[in-house]
């Protein structure tokens, strides 16, 4: 399912102009990371993808749907959105019920809900914790529950807002594993992140935003090598990219494999 954004502008009621002309097309199955400084408009942008915000000007299309013509609860069939703070959405008595909430809202039959929940719990390594109350889990695991509760909706598009904030290395790997699984299933994944190494290792396309506009947009290797432009939006290139730049490697590298291949030459 295509995402087509045309000349999107958005101004908050306070008068803050958060998006200043964004045009963007995301093809089905793409893995996109959005990076940029605090207040660049990243969250404002993705909130337009499931209709939580409506364009002040321009338009956002999810497949053949104009987001202005469908309520958020209907757009949820196509776009799943994992909020940054899991504590702003968890309310059920146990993990299983929490994860079933979304697909039930979408009106899927009971057997399908069960299958979707089971799959989402397995993918997020929560199967053992189905009967646990989400609030008895650590914040690390609550984050996984929030993730599972969107995956179970089986949407073509999945949005993740800062999935790795405050997470340790083990859980970051778990989240990376989930994203890889979604890629294999042909889902579109759009992630906002400050964790640039995580971005480099898990995403093929990177969009850098600054002051409500798109600064850079392209294949990860192209975007992440632009040290000077990235610095204007308070982003450093990934560790190995910087190392490659300093060593004067010809091509931009962004993960261990690329780095080792390049240095062998």
């Amino acid at each position: 399912m295509n995402i087509i954004i045309r000349d999107l502008r958005f101004t908050y009621p306070t008068g803050l102009e958060a998006l200043r002309g964004i045009s963007l097309t995301i093809a089905p199955g793409e893995q996109v990371a959005i990076v940029g400084q605090n207040g660049a408009g990243k969250t404002t942008l993705v909130k337009h993808l499931n209709g939580l915000l409506q364009p002040t000007q321009g338009s956002v299309h999810i497949g053949d749907w104009d987001t202005r013509q469908h309520p958020v609860s209907k757009l949820a069939v196509r776009v799943g959105y994992v909020f940054q703070n899991p504590d702003e959405q968890l309310f059920s008595q146990n993990v299983g019920m929490e994860v079933a909430f979304g697909p039930k809202n979408l009106g899927y039959p009971a057997e399908k809900v069960d299958a979707l929940v089971k799959d989402a719990l397995a993918l997020t390594e929560l199967s053992e914790k189905t009967e646990t109350n989400p609030y008895d889990l650590s914040s690390t695991w609550r984050k996984m529950v929030a993730l599972a509760s969107i995956i179970s909706m089986d949407t073509d598009i999945v949005i993740l807002d800062e999935p790795t904030t405050g997470q340790d290395a083990v859980n970051v790997r778990r989240i990376a594993h989930v994203i890889a699984a979604l890629r294999e299933r042909g889902k579109t994944v759009i992630t906002i992140t400050h964790d640039i190494d995580f971005c480099a290792e898990n995403f093929e396309r990177v969009i850098a935003m600054s002051q409500g506009q798109i600064l850079l947009d392209g294949p990860a290797n192209e975007v992440l090598g632009q040290e000077e432009i990235l610095a204007t939006t308070y982003v450093d290139p990934p560790q190995l990219t910087r190392l490659g730049l300093r060593l004067g490697l010809k091509e931009t590298v962004r993960n261990q494999e690329e780095f080792l291949t390049a240095i062998r030459k």
């Binding site: 405050g166 400050h194 308070y234």
Partner: peptide
């Protein structure tokens, strides 16, 4: 205790 968790990369530095 994790005082930079929500900061952008250069802000963190």
């Amino acid at each position: 205790d994790e005082p930079t968790s929500q900061m952008d990369p250069i802000g963190t530095r």
